[in-house]
Amino acid sequence: MSEVKKIATRESYGNALKEIGAENPNIVALDADLAGATKTSVFMKAFPERHIDCGIAECNMMGVAAGLATAGKIPFASTFAMFAAGRAFEQVRNSIGYPHLNVKIGATHAGISVGEDGATHQCCEDIALMRTIPGMVVISPADDVEAKAAVRAAAEYVGPVYLRFGRLAVPVFNDPETYKFELGKGIVLREGKDVTIVATGLCVAESLAAAEQLAAKGIDAKVINIHTIKPLDEELIVAAAKETGKVVTVEEHSVIGGLGSVVCDCLSAKAPTTVLKIGINDVFGESGPAAQLIKKYGLDADSIAAKVEAFVK
């Protein structure tokens, strides 16, 4: 694992937008004065006339995206997760969700891995917010390969999609030659019989590394990557729960309302199972280098392995 390439999924977002923009003239990108950070600047350089900078006005941007969608455009409205899902929640619900318009929300800088900017910009509530909107698809890709495929899938799907990207460069573990993104389908990355670790976003790579550590201690962990939080791949989750008996969820998001809650909602009805939720424990983040924060908040491989070990024993 020493020479693994690292790319932030926001980079993947910008690059993918440019790619699909070349193929489909209806793709437009909107931003709110963060084009350099969300990487829609990559699209802007290629297609300046199709890049609409709305300035620092996210609520209006969501409405403008809705209007563009009514006229047949495929708008990707981009800003930080905090402002996309948080500040503009009601605009997303009423102007995009309620009319089920074909708007894609490209939310970057999700979670504590925003780093030094601190708690005001570290959104750990966006999955919870977005998944409550009827008809909203919620996608949280784990690496560059998956993120690019997710952007393409979102553009092909007709209806509102929330895409969650990160600021931090993360390991690219999927093979671009063989990787296939299927909306609503989880991916088993590692088989195991003692416990199932269900992870999303940057926690997938950390969970895979944790599984290796656990193996050394004689604990055989199955690892599932859930890139589509909504609709959830219930079949896969239920089967894994029945197979391993115990389930751990890992996410860079609040343990309230995120992947952990989604999995519990599913299992409580279909296969009651003891679930350990690893995530942000109902607290705000803080400033600091992303890698240090991930460790401090217990989302690194060592912390995950320790928690899973204690849970399984």
Binding site: M62, G63, V64, A66, G67, L68, A71, E90, N94, S95
Partner: peptide
């Protein structure tokens, strides 16, 4: 042409249509 009712939002959609 547009779902509306939550005040302040319709004008944004109209701006989006005009841009389109």
């Amino acid at each position: 042409d547009m779902s509306s009712g939550s005040l302040g939002q319709g004008i944004s959609a109209a701006v989006g249509m005009a841009i389109a």
